[in-house]
Design a protein around this nucleic acid. Sequence first.
DNA 1: TTGAAAGCGCTAACAC
DNA 2: GTGTTAGCGCTTTCAA
Lengths: 334, 334
Amino acid sequence: MNKKATINEVARQANVSIATVSRYLSNNGYPIKEETKEKIELAIKALDYTPNYLGRMLKTNKSMDIGVIIPTILNPYYPAVILGIENLAREKGYNILLCNSKRDKTLQKQYIDTLIQKQIKGLIISSIGDEETLFHDIVKKGIGLVSLEEEAPIDGVGQVLFNYQNGAYLAIRHLIEQGHRKIAFLTSPLNKKSRNEILQGYSRCLNDYKLDYYKVIENKQENEYENGIMLAKLLMAEKHLPTAVLAVNDMAAYGIMQYLMQNGIRIPEDMSIIGFDDLIISKMMNPPLTTVRQPSEMTGELAASMLFDILEGQQARKIVLEPELIIRASTKKI
Amino acid sequence: MNKKATINEVARQANVSIATVSRYLSNNGYPIKEETKEKIELAIKALDYTPNYLGRMLKTNKSMDIGVIIPTILNPYYPAVILGIENLAREKGYNILLCNSKRDKTLQKQYIDTLIQKQIKGLIISSIGDEETLFHDIVKKGIGLVSLEEEAPIDGVGQVLFNYQNGAYLAIRHLIEQGHRKIAFLTSPLNKKSRNEILQGYSRCLNDYKLDYYKVIENKQENEYENGIMLAKLLMAEKHLPTAVLAVNDMAAYGIMQYLMQNGIRIPEDMSIIGFDDLIISKMMNPPLTTVRQPSEMTGELAASMLFDILEGQQARKIVLEPELIIRASTKKI
DNA sequence: TTGAAAGCGCTAACAC
DNA sequence: GTGTTAGCGCTTTCAA
């Protein structure tokens, strides 16, 4: 491990000034004699020189990093979001600092602080809960901010939202059209706005169709799959079983299916199940899961594109993505 | 968006020197009078000051970032690896720059260059193919390097490997013990070392048990799930069907199961299936997938811990993780 | 087309 | 306990 060469040494080796080397490196059309260029190229090769962006960033006050904070990458919804962000970021020459907040406010705050200190130009965050002052601090520092899923509490923040309510509506309407009348909604704790919106879409649709029976079961477990199993257990304890179930997300739906099938309930013959997300594996399930698609990769790309717009001085926008119902084999007409 | 305050302004506001502020910030036991501390704290609050780590990093030549390059985060094996890395990195105060190489050598090279320029202290990479000079360049720059899955072609590189061969052996032996005699191996292109090792474990075990029948089907598709479907199709075209199948990975196994079941083959009654990886969703499948567990989160944690050891001057080590067979319901005695 | 020099925000050696 | 100052590697203004 030899000491890294600096621009100074390259300049000395090539017998030119560091200004010239710098101009060569930034490659911005500044005129340099061919001969000089060649000398510099030779020196760079000889010294195995790599520019130190820290110096550049410090000088120009332009880091080329953006932060991405998500609850947990173990939820298969997020990898696609991240990939979407990365696709655009790469084009623009940015890299991604990835952080898993694990739904821990302290940890999230800590990550944000570090990211700010590392001079990120922008932050895309799927935040936990309403963090007005937090968001405010970030924007005040001149850092571009885009909020995923949750409505931003202040101005100047880009937002890529999803119409959860319509998603649930679509799902329930489909079930009703398929002849279902007893439709339950099984959910994780209703401490997230998105989950509440799904609940609203669910009840709005039942209302519209003048259906009076419904059952909402909530459970406290935060691991979505385990939660699904618990929810199914609670469901089975009911006197009157519904003929169809809307799960708050796909992972929970997997758990519900698993438990029901192990207890002799056939899907979709005895019970129809609709999930929410359309994770890549939902189509691989047996039966393949009917679900409300929330376009994850597109969410990432939109968020990134919005972020770069903000960085270029444009107004922060708000996009609400509309759901699409993906009908597979976990639901059936009765 | 007000201009960011610097350490100078804090010093002026607090009526102390910037050295004192710097000492206060680095918080390394250097003695400072209580009163002075308070003045500084007040100034920091008043100016809404956040330290600029770029300055510190440049001065101390210590960035606190590490790079992580993986083929694609869409493969559910990697998120857990990343989480494992992050867990340790956070403890040590490091952040992660995440890059998806998409199995594209040019892109991978490009990412590595940028990461080096951004002065990462270390790199954990699941590389594509044998990149001797690439690895060499990284190590030469004094950057800690840990290779995942693939054996490193040069010295000084940490390695977290997995005993794929034993994994396959375990799987096949289990099938044999369950009475299976016709066992096929279905695989993606054999252009990865890991896949070849699985093949070797497969044939070694059949050899040991003096079983002469076997069938290896390879297909070119790179999307693992789609590949699984194609593989199952090819399998069905055979005159004599095996009673059991080892899939090269879990995602392929899902595809195989899907296709077989849609074509009236019951799993495990008509055909046993074993996967390879134990992705978190494998237990959620129907039937839950018997598979060889490759401990992903532990891989990440080990890689990170090895990297930090290297950064502290220790010798690069090589760890080979041993497989564990997770028996679920996709296999059965015959 | 090139060079000299100031300075980005910070740390640390040295002086008091 | 605190201040002065050089300089990390780079860009950019100004002058030539």
